[in-house]
């Protein structure tokens, strides 16, 4: 073999091993979700037939409530963050007004404050507002916090848009809102989608905050739901448990399918570098 070809073969072999190891938990999740106990014990490593779809029926009854809660929280949080932060970022990026620098640095300063410091006092604030064990109590602090990074990213993006476009529209009589909605947002669409996705995924994955806010089972999102779900199953019901994990992943997969293209463009173009 020529050395060049040998190198290529070695690269493929290493990559295939790495991919296989990376995807193994996923493979195991999927095959086990379709097994009953017997299949699980006797055919641990390989997929089996018949597929036990009834695992999914059992799991759906357990997790559907949590999933719809999570969809609600993640969607509302991401939409609110995109709306609030794009308006503020637009104001900071395209206008001059007294106190602009001070206000912007006030927001930027919050990037220095780690979420871990905020857990206890945010809990206390939410309790003070009487919002413990409510959907608003879950959402408001997440929206507030989500804005900071988003404003920072979007402001950079909006500031880079060519002024001529805004000038031309202004001459045609466009107002603040029209400039924002018809020029700034469409031209920054990939980054806006990325911000939406990052916030959606962030809320979907949040474990600690819902753990301290909620005690009512019917309000819990998928993360804390699955933690209790795990406890309910004995060794004989790995199938339904794994089916529940798969169901909990589906909405995130859908969001990624829609947004992945923008996300990869977003991080590889350097827009998300701090």
């Amino acid at each position: 073999m020529k050395p060049a070809i040998r190198g290529e073969v070695i690269r493929h072999v290493i990559l295939i091993i790495l991919v296989a190891l990376t995807l193994f938990p996923l493979y195991f999740l999927l095959i086990t979700s379709f097994k009953d106990y017997d299949q699980f014990i006797h055919h641990f490593w390989e997929p089996t037939l018949p597929l036990r779809w009834e695992n999914y029926v059992v799991a759906w009854q357990e997790v559907s409530g949590y999933i719809s809660n999570s969809i609600l929280y993640a969607t509302v949080e991401a939409l609110c963050v995109v709306m609030l932060s794009s308006i503020s970022a637009y104001v900071f990026a395209r206008y001059k007004f007294p106190g602009k620098e001070v206000l912007f640095y006030l927001i930027l300063g919050l990037l220095m404050i780690p979420p871990v410091l905020m857990l206890i006092p945010q809990f206390l604030v939410v309790r003070w507002f009487g919002l413990l064990d409510t959907r608003a109590g879950m959402l408001l602090p997440m929206i507030a916090g989500g804005q900071v990074f988003s404003i920072f990213i979007l402001r950079t993006f909006f500031a880079g848009l060519p002024e001529e476009l805004f000038e031309a529209a202004r001459i045609d009589g466009a107002n603040h809102f029209q400039l924002y909605f018809w020029i700034a947002i469409p031209l920054s669409f990939p980054i806006v989608v990325t911000i939406f996705m990052l916030n959606f995924v962030g809320t979907w994955n949040e474990i600690i905050w819902p753990l301290v806010v909620f005690s009512r089972e019917e309000l819990k999102p998928v993360t804390t739901g699955l933690l209790t779900f795990q406890g309910q199953f004995t060794v004989t019901s790995y199938g339904p448990m794994f089916a529940g994990y798969v169901l909990a992943s589906i909405p995130l997969v859908v969001v990624f399918l829609f947004c992945m293209k923008y996300y990869i463009t977003g991080i590889t173009s350097g827009a998300l570098k701090i």
């Binding site: 609030l84 932060s85 308006i87 503020s88 104001v91 206008y95 007004f97 007294p98 106190g99 206000l103 006030l106 927001i107 919050l110 404050i113 410091l117 905020m118 206890i120 006092p121 945010q122 206390l124 604030v125 507002f129 408001l140 602090p141 929206i143 507030a144 916090g145 804005q147 900071v148 404003i151 603040h176």
Partner: peptide
């Protein structure tokens, strides 16, 4: 400042949220 009042108004929602759920908690902590 008076001329820019619309701009400040547009920033109010962001800052209200930040004061309630970020600045105040950070100081409390």
């Amino acid at each position: 400042v008076a001329r820019s009042r619309t701009l400040y108004l547009l920033l109010v929602p962001t800052f209200l949220m930040l004061i309630a759920f970020n600045y105040w908690p950070a100081i409390t902590a």
